Computed example of a mutant assay.
Amino acid sequence: MNLHALRLFYTVAKLGSVTRAADELRISQPAVTKQIKQFEKDISTTLFVPRNRRIQLTDAGEILAEQAEKLFSLERQMEAYLKDYALGKTGTIRLAATYLPANFLIPAWAAQFKKEHEDVEMMITTMNSREAFNQLIHFEADVAVFGGGKDEQETDLIHWDELFQDELWFVVPKGHPFANKEISLEEMVTVPFIMREEGSSTRERLFALCKTYHVKAPKISLQFSGLNESIRAVLAGYGAIFISSLVVRDLVEKGELSQVYVKGVQLKNSIAIWTRKGEVLTPAVQSFVDLVKSSTHV
């Protein structure tokens, strides 16, 4: 079926006049009449009949006009969707993030983003750094936010943009013998540690630190899949954690936890946003990435 002819027919049917249709379509009245007659011939169906100097739809014309209304309404919806998609106002964002950004950063970013992109579906999953990295390279996530650095995730498959840096602290319960003191790394690792599972960037950073200083790695006495559980265990009075300052700063300032200062050790933790290298992001994902970068002044 000739869609151009169908649109012309629909316009005449909607306006009830060849003249008015010709004006709206900006073509001559004879051209409209000619194309309608050709359309009727092509589909072997009479669509209009003359009546009192006007035209009237036949039964077949009435039905076709109703179907054409549905078709062109769907076309308008598709055009609106594509326009919104191009502006990043619709679509889906699958975001993989580690505990720190998922709990302290992403809620504010997501809320700000949704204010202007209400129809974009966001699926945010919290996991460790290795899992977030793997989800990204296996196309299970569109973008990832986690700590670490380029050297820890050597690959030509992903692009890395640092958002900001925070410090990594050794933290113990209040009243611990090492609380607020400066000690050696050898002394620090004598304390039983509470840590995340393998794949956690801070766990890997601690083990790498011990290897660099030729110090035996600490004993992992408790292992949790969530960082919050690790913090609660230390709050309950047991062990030590190696953790981002952003996560525990308030608890340290309130005196509920205590920092330990390890001689010669000052580590920074880079929080970065990761995407697949060379990939053109969907408008929605690109809009979110741009918002995150502007929020952290990258």
Rank of each mutant, 00 (worst) to 15 (best):
residue 38 Q to G: 14
residue 38 Q to R: 14
residue 39 F to G: 00
residue 42 D to E: 11
residue 44 S to T: 07
residue 47 L to R: 06
residue 47 L to V: 07
residue 47 L to K: 04
residue 49 V to D: 11
residue 53 R to Y: 13
residue 54 R to V: 01
residue 61 G to L: 01
residue 64 L to N: 02
residue 66 E to D: 07
residue 68 A to K: 07
residue 70 K to D: 08
residue 72 F to K: 02
residue 72 F to A: 05
residue 72 F to G: 05
residue 75 E to V: 09
residue 75 E to P: 04
residue 76 R to T: 01
residue 79 E to I: 07
residue 79 E to H: 06
residue 79 E to G: 08
residue 81 Y to H: 06
residue 81 Y to N: 08
residue 82 L to K: 12
residue 84 D to I: 08
residue 84 D to F: 08
residue 87 L to N: 11
residue 88 G to Y: 05
residue 88 G to S: 09
residue 94 R to K: 09
residue 94 R to Y: 07
residue 95 L to M: 05
residue 97 A to M: 10
residue 98 T to N: 02
residue 100 L to D: 10
residue 101 P to Q: 04
residue 101 P to H: 02
residue 102 A to W: 02
residue 104 F to I: 06
residue 106 I to A: 05
residue 107 P to H: 03
residue 108 A to T: 10
residue 109 W to L: 15
residue 113 F to T: 00
residue 114 K to P: 11
residue 115 K to P: 12
residue 116 E to I: 02
residue 116 E to N: 05
residue 117 H to V: 01
residue 118 E to W: 01
residue 119 D to N: 15
residue 125 T to R: 09
residue 127 M to N: 09
residue 129 S to T: 03
residue 129 S to L: 03
residue 129 S to G: 02
residue 132 A to T: 12
residue 135 Q to F: 10
residue 136 L to H: 08
residue 136 L to M: 08
residue 136 L to G: 06
residue 138 H to N: 14
residue 144 A to I: 04
residue 146 F to H: 05
residue 147 G to E: 04
residue 148 G to H: 01
residue 149 G to Y: 10
residue 150 K to M: 15
residue 151 D to Y: 12
residue 151 D to S: 12
residue 152 E to M: 10
residue 153 Q to V: 13
residue 153 Q to N: 09
residue 155 T to P: 00
residue 156 D to A: 14
residue 156 D to I: 13
